[in-house]
Design a protein around this nucleic acid. Structure first.
Lengths: 360, 360
DNA sequence: GCTTAGCACTCTCGCGTGGAGAGTGCCAAC
DNA sequence: GTTGGCACTCTCCACGCGAGAGTGCTAAGC
């Protein structure tokens, strides 16, 4: 019922709501009619603004913590603010430069790179950052290598085109001589580089069932090793950074809340579900309050985006913090860092050598 | 001046001090003379106990938060408690079994193993656990492998006898053909398996300077790659687990303290310094309050031990929490887990295949 | 000479009270 | 439609007070 009314928000109402939200984001305290009037942007008296505020409350954009307190924006208000009331500033040149410098500096592999990204995100936002590393299956193979490490154990090293390195120890039914391991890894690298691990695995499984009996022992071994070495079961890794900066914020003065927050961070699987669930398209997505169980439980918001190489989205990255957030800064930051990370992953580790590899 | 007096602690004084500490550890509240008398273990009246408590305070074992509050043990009291007043219980069979099962279960490599150890430690103690992974230089080489990943980039995979796997990307001045890489890794694995990376690096450096001009190009390349691949510069990894359980404790009702705690955890280098600084000998070491800057800053204690393979200590593990700690449980736990982890590292990944490798 | 009961003293903690301040809602006037 | 005025409500803080807990001291008892 309120929505119909809400659609009628006249420009002046919007201006007032905008001021209230902007003020609250900075002050963390309920905003009074008087303080809006005092800003003087609209030349209205406190009484008039009070009337508007009463309407805005009725329409679901504001709430009062108690009678005779100022008003606080609701999630609906934040949504409207983000969509049509704020001008998303460009990320300041200083911060862009800072990001570029850091991403370009040391990283030898992609895992370090996303670690740096996570740290940048929390440092520049003073909030908690969350970065989900790619699921192994989505990465594109560049090379495989097997190193014997014990009697029937082989270390399988998988290097992806994006620069991720994964290693896992697999048990082999029988002892496999070193030369054969080399042959197998050459075979796999040459034949499958350029495909995602998921594709490779599917193809191998199909081959196995189709040609079950005709395969020679070399191919059989290869398939066995590859099946184990490229298994996709593992949970994607999640990096959480910057929790201590959050503790300075007034909304976390209550220990119980802090505790629930940390418990949420411990449950990585839930984080991954939330992050990945909210990213389908390309841009930045914002979840506020009731939008998801995690954000509603803590009265937090999540600003998330994905990073990708080419068309393939690899993982997500985002910022998690109290709903009262400087969206004008945070959204461009997440957006920019998503792109910067995508760029760094595309440029830094893949490229020319991948083709060379296939030609060997 | 007090110490002389303290040496005179008669058995009854010790009994009373012991009761006070034990009570305080459980209750987290200042202990009154009356509550000690009520336990009735000594058949003394509260007044008598009061007299003793006044002495104990004078000698530096107790303090009062304010006049007319009960008394609280000082770090000196905890030290005495640990050294001669508590009977360290054996770790209950249930917990031993739990530890063994978990350590024996999944782990494919040593990094996972220490992750599990860290988790066990925090879970069983309900405190924060800290585990320092081995410095790379202290591990014993089992195999080296090089995988080309880009034009002049080679991924160097180092597998240690203990089961740790480390990989880093190194830039090579020139393109090195794949066969040569294989030769180099064979050469290194065959000649150096069984030595710590530090030894190997030193030996290579010596060789390089001694035979500077006589080395052929193969050896030169080998030395170059090994020098970079086995570089020891990296900070050891630190695992911190279980922070959220700590938040339930009454001593962390104050947010400021929580914040300082998290800031301390962020400064990994400082943690490493503290942990490693306190472990020289074999057993369990306990730092309380003023013993180190980190513990005194937070009024925390650290119970730490090392884990090792053979004689070589590899890393440290410990529990960090408010000084009021159930030392009777925590100390055996840390002790046992240090041994269990040492055992798991010795058995699980090294052993027979190491020798086989050298004979190739 | 050690132990203990008794007692006065001190300090914290919880609770109610009361006033100041902030903010609202409503009404009447413009 | 806007605004000044005013009564009302609610929070917050300071204050005081009494209860309770615990101590230190003293004097009496074993």
């Amino acid at each position: 019922m309120e929505t119909r009314e809400a659609d009628r928000l006249v420009p002046r109402d919007r201006e007032i709501l905008r001021d209230i939200i902007a003020t609250y984001i900075l002050s963390a305290e309920p905003v009074s009619s008087r303080s809006v009037a005092k800003q003087g942007r609209l030349g209205l008296s406190a009484a008039t603004i009070r009337n508007v505020m009463a309407d805005l409350e009725e329409w679901g954009y504001l709430v009062q913590p108690h009678t005779s307190a100022g008003r606080v924006p609701t999630p609906a208000a934040y949504h409207m603010f983000i969509e049509s009331m704020m001008q998303a500033r460009k990320l300041p040149a200083r911060e862009r430069r800072y990001i570029e410098e850091n991403l370009a500096s040391t990283p030898a592999d992609a895992d370090q790179l996303i670690g740096i990204a996570s740290h940048l995100l929390s440092e520049l936002s003073q909030q908690v950052s969350i970065v989900v590393a790619p699921a192994l299956g989505d990465t594109v193979l560049k090379a495989v290598d097997f190193v014997p490490v014990a009697e029937r154990k082989v270390l399988c090293v998988v290097v992806s085109q994006e620069g991720f390195v994964d290693n896992r120890v697999i048990e082999t039914g029988e002892e496999i001589p070193r030369q054969e391991l080399t042959r197998i890894s050459n075979y796999l690298s040459e034949n499958f580089a350029g495909h995602t691990l998921r594709e490779i695995r599917d193809r191998l499984l199909r081959q196995m069932t189709e040609e079950r009996l005709q395969v020679d022992s070399f191919l059989a071994r290869t398939i066995d090793l590859a099946r184990e070495g490229l298994a996709l079961d593992s949970q994607p890794e999640v990096l959480v950074d910057g929790a201590s900066a959050l503790l300075a914020r007034p909304e976390l003065a209550d220990i119980q809340r802090v505790r629930r927050m940390f418990e949420a961070f411990t449950d990585k699987a839930r984080l991954v579900r939330m992050l990945n669930g909210c990213i389908q398209g390309g841009g930045v997505r914002v979840l506020i309050g009731d939008d998801s169980d995690l954000t509603s439980e803590l009265d937090f918001s999540l600003v998330a985006s994905s990073y990708r190489v080419g068309e393939q989205p690899l993982g997500t990255l985002g910022i998690f913090g109290p709903s009262r957030m400087e969206y004008q800064k945070i959204i461009p930051l997440v957006h920019y860092l998503g792109q910067a990370l995508s760029r760094a992953l595309s440029e830094g580790f893949a490229g020319a050598p991948a083709e060379r590899w296939e030609k060997r």
